[in-house]
Design a protein around this nucleic acid. Sequence first.
DNA 1: GAGTGGTCTAGACCACTGA
DNA 2: CAGTGGTCTAGACCACTCG
Lengths: 259, 259
Amino acid sequence: MATAGSATDASLDAEPAVGPGAPAFRPLYQQIKDLITRSLQAGEWRPGEAIPSEMELAARFKVSQGTVRKAIDALADENLVVRRQGKGTFVATHAEEHTQFRFLRLAPDDGSAGPAARRFIDCRRVRAPADVARALQLRSGDAVVEVRRVLSFGGRPVVFDDLWLPGVPFRGLTAERLAGYRGPMYRLFEAEFGVPMVRADERIRAVAADATAAGVLEVPPGTPLLSVERVSFTYGDKPVELRRGLYHTAAHHYRNQLL
Amino acid sequence: MATAGSATDASLDAEPAVGPGAPAFRPLYQQIKDLITRSLQAGEWRPGEAIPSEMELAARFKVSQGTVRKAIDALADENLVVRRQGKGTFVATHAEEHTQFRFLRLAPDDGSAGPAARRFIDCRRVRAPADVARALQLRSGDAVVEVRRVLSFGGRPVVFDDLWLPGVPFRGLTAERLAGYRGPMYRLFEAEFGVPMVRADERIRAVAADATAAGVLEVPPGTPLLSVERVSFTYGDKPVELRRGLYHTAAHHYRNQLL
DNA sequence: GAGTGGTCTAGACCACTGA
DNA sequence: CAGTGGTCTAGACCACTCG
């Protein structure tokens, strides 16, 4: 079977489709990948849950197991999904993640990986300034939630984060909720608000500590700090967080691997 | 055929090999990948050249095309090799690379991607200081080549690099050679010295400009700068460059994608 | 049209997990 | 033990490149 006729709950290309608009060529496994992504987006399976087995998905989409496998491989490459031999394939989650990995690329200069202590400075509903609105694809003045917090390692404040979340999915996010939660903040976002962070872009520069940052991070004003501006996305490449972080890099560094 | 007997020029696992030392299980395609990597390392095919077709490699290693394909896929994922449909598979090269991509993650704040201007401050043979020797896995005092250079964008100096290369493969690297070369520095390294950079680890922090950096980058002393310490590797995870870069991030930023 | 990589299938068997 | 993902094979056909 070269072209599938139809699937149970969504449509694959019925014909090779070589119209004048030339939709080019779209491999079957990519179409399957999109269908699975759509199911993730729709919440058909929640973070941490298993998705159906390859055999089941192959039956559902009327394609071979190999094609489903390629689709899932692609999803696994993007960390949307995690494969576990003998057990199944699971929707990626920030639940385990060994606390501060994956998205916080800060490492201590020596290997000592002490646990992070969090302190929330505030959490307020505000109207989105123009730059925040632009980053989150909202309109200026739309409701957003602003959170400010500090991360400390070994008793010393190292990270000062100022972040904004769209008001609508994050209605009900309060300082108490944040302070009372055990586990990574992104885990709370996905578990309590149904917004899993899946990808992020960062822009990094060096800046001098202003009075506020100096006070929070307990350094003299003017101290060089790493400025990390991050936009995080959920499933449909939809931006759902703007974060401005200031990192004190006297005993820590931002690690990155190029390949 | 579940286990291959032998190959033309190297050995695959002859037996499942379940000794007491438990070498675990090593998929065939990974063994093939290692063999191909070894050929790359030995210079059997040079950067930019095509490697044999999947069919030829399958015949050479006495495995199916599908297995070779998986091996090459893995190599392509690590950017050791580039696949081009209809043409072949080619050893990765820094020849095209659109000038400043892949390894220099600095981008202008506005989209304006002007060409970079290079200026070489010096290029000397020196004895490796302890920290350089450690990073390059040499002995303190071994000969290394130190290069210092500046990159400018739109007439303004933005990057000040100080880098060390092991003396032995880089015998004959001179300021004239560097200044006279058209194209990326890493292209010169792979083409003239047979050392392709394949992977790199970076450690980033914020520092204040000292007198030297301030002079070179034309900023006041104390200006916050991005400090980027990079160790680059060739094929066998062998470190072949230590680079300390200082980036002036007033109009540029270091971009990074997290997934 | 010949040769390359890319897709898709079908089936066998292996490694791992957990009841 | 049954069920999962992981490997390997063999063969067909497709998309792309280039002479």
